[in-house]
Design a binder for these strands. Structure first.
Lengths: 190, 190
DNA sequence: GGTTTCATGTAACTAGTTACATGATTTA
DNA sequence: TAAATCATGTAACTAGTTACATGAAACC
């Protein structure tokens, strides 16, 4: 049950509406816990009932009122409580892994195409992460340099590096499989 | 919707009951798509209705009848269809990443303890995978050696290597974070 | 004598997705 | 004039979890 907490983190960085949160979740913290706008609206209402967030309704002309949510003291307390409480280590549920095992003779062409698709998708996501790294954490601001990052910026950077690591892992895994499953085209009889 | 397919793969390797599948899912294919026994029973019934599996009831004394499921032709066809159809690239939903971002001053001790827990858990899982590798894929049976693996054994091995890669990634990420977040104990004034 | 194993199930719940609706405003 | 953006919502669905129940057998 961590969508609550992901929303609290995002709102703590910047108060906003459900709609804005849904948009933000297309990037940033959303890389690690995405959600549809319906799910976000529902959870926001629940959090308001519990007093974790407060809501200010801003009237607008020509469209529904905007509800701007802000983290309340109880919300911060909940975050602190949650951090101290052990959670399950992240567990990968890989559809691709099941497909590899599911492949039977006659499906190899489709399987290889699918692995290639996944490799390229992970490579593309890696590019996005690297761009964010370049934009938000330029060279001198590293972990060990003369002006190492601290506080929220450091935490943000560490999470981004985790994302990069994971995507690299996925991509290399796909490439490994392609190498192992693609019959080497015979260069031995010219 | 891949639990169906994970069950088909497992049943295709060896026909069995829901109970047996739940036990198997504690390892092997279950590393990549686990499920509770209730979920498994429900999906098995649905697959039987659809004709993907057939069910043979084996009476037993002193305990409920055992229902042994076997993959039917329609089940194999479904696997083939599913492999050819593109699926979403695996996406990591990391509770730990959210915790890193959620940490505020005063929660660092708890956060570091939590990261350490996760590092150790991933390390333990890595040990399990390496043991399986040693047991099922001893040295000579590699990808490039004189007798390279083929068929189902190769696919099993490739998935296992993926699991190892992922766990190494998680563990190294945790260690990185610990290094970056643990204040270096001052050795500079003896 | 208490726990674990075998083997299935019901019921109630939480989490998350998909489809649809509204309606003005800006952009192509 | 068609599509995308802003901003929320209802309704119906699928997926998955938690708690509980049964009852014999084997293990410690």
């Amino acid at each position: 049950m961590a969508l609550e907490h992901a929303l609290l983190v995002s709102l703590d960085e910047h108060a906003g509406s459900g709609y804005e949160l849904a948009r933000r979740f297309d990037k940033s913290i959303g890389f690690f816990h995405s959600a549809t706008h319906q799910q976000i609206y529902r959870v926001l209402r629940r959090m308001e009932e519990r007093g974790w967030v407060t809501c200010e309704t801003v009237p607008q002309d020509g469209r529904p009122d905007k509800k701007i949510y802000t983290v309340a003291a109880a919300g911060h307390a909940e975050l602190d409580r949650w951090i101290a409480q052990p959670s399950e280590p992240d567990h990968l549920r890989s559809e691709l892994a099941v497909k590899i095992r599911a492949a039977r003779p006659g499906t190899m062409v489709e399987l290889l195409a699918e692995i290639t698709r996944h490799r390229d998708a992970h490579d593309a996501r890696l590019d996005v992460y690297r761009l964010i790294e370049k934009r938000d954490f330029p060279a001198p601001a590293s972990l060990t340099g003369p002006a190492p990052l601290t506080g929220p910026a450091l935490h943000q950077y560490l999470v981004l590096r985790g994302g990069i690591r994971v995507e690299e892992g996925f991509r290399d895994w796909c490439q490994d499989m392609l190498d192992a499953l693609t019959p080497p085209s015979g260069q031995d009889h010219p």
